[in-house]
Computed example of a mutant assay.
Amino acid sequence: MPQKTALLTSWRTPVAAGFLLLACSLASAQWVWMEGGRKVFSDTAPPASVPDKSIVKRPGGGGAPMLPPAAAAPSTPAEGEATAQAPATSTGAPQLPAGDKELEARKKQAEQAEEAKRKAEEQRIAKARSDNCARARQAKATMDSGVRLATTNAKGEREVMDDKARAAESRRLDDVVRSDCGPMPKAAQ
């Protein structure tokens, strides 16, 4: 009988060691990510809504290193204290490296510069439209007054506008008033 016991214990030890190794390898094949100020452990990948910077650990050791236990484990309240949880503080969340903060500041500054440039361009276009509108209205009023108007031709000679030229110029001025005196077209905005 002692031989049978020795035989049983001799195969149990390697099998138990194998199970322990398997359990350790399964434990290392876990995903860890931060969600709402707490750590989430899973053997499946996090949902697509979790940003890459929130992933703390990937299977196989890839990804960001684990957070220190002091930052990850919240303290439990004493018996006499209230059990309501306090809002998450910045010490519990992963800290951004200084390079990321600088990058965010530069990105914000570039966005502000682009916005200022766009507003300046809109103001320039609005001023040009306003000036064109005022000139077109003034010319249209002159055209409608019935006063004889003269233009200068390519040779520098003065020519009095006939009725046909006067009607064509009046139509052109009407188009300018319609385009520049109304609201800004959607394509230009």
Rank of each mutant, 00 (worst) to 15 (best):
A116Q: 13
K107W: 04
P46Y: 13
R178F: 00
E35T: 00
P47V: 03
A188G: 01
V177Q: 03
A70W: 07
G63V: 01
V56K: 05
W31K: 13
C181Y: 00
G80Q: 02
L103Y: 09
E81K: 02
P2I: 05
V160G: 01
L173E: 03
P51F: 02
M66L: 08
G37Y: 04
T76P: 02
Q30Y: 09
A93P: 01
F41Y: 15
E157K: 13
V160W: 12
P14C: 05
S49Q: 14
E159N: 11
M34N: 11
A48H: 06
G63E: 03
T142A: 12
A86C: 09
A29K: 07
G62L: 07
S130R: 15
R12Y: 05
G80K: 00
E35R: 09
S54W: 12
T151H: 11
R129P: 09
S145P: 05
V177R: 05
Q95V: 08
L20D: 11
V56P: 02
T91S: 15
P68N: 13
W31I: 08
K155Y: 10
A187E: 15
G99C: 08
L103D: 10
G182F: 09
L103K: 15
M184E: 15
T151E: 12
A17G: 04
L7W: 12
V50F: 08
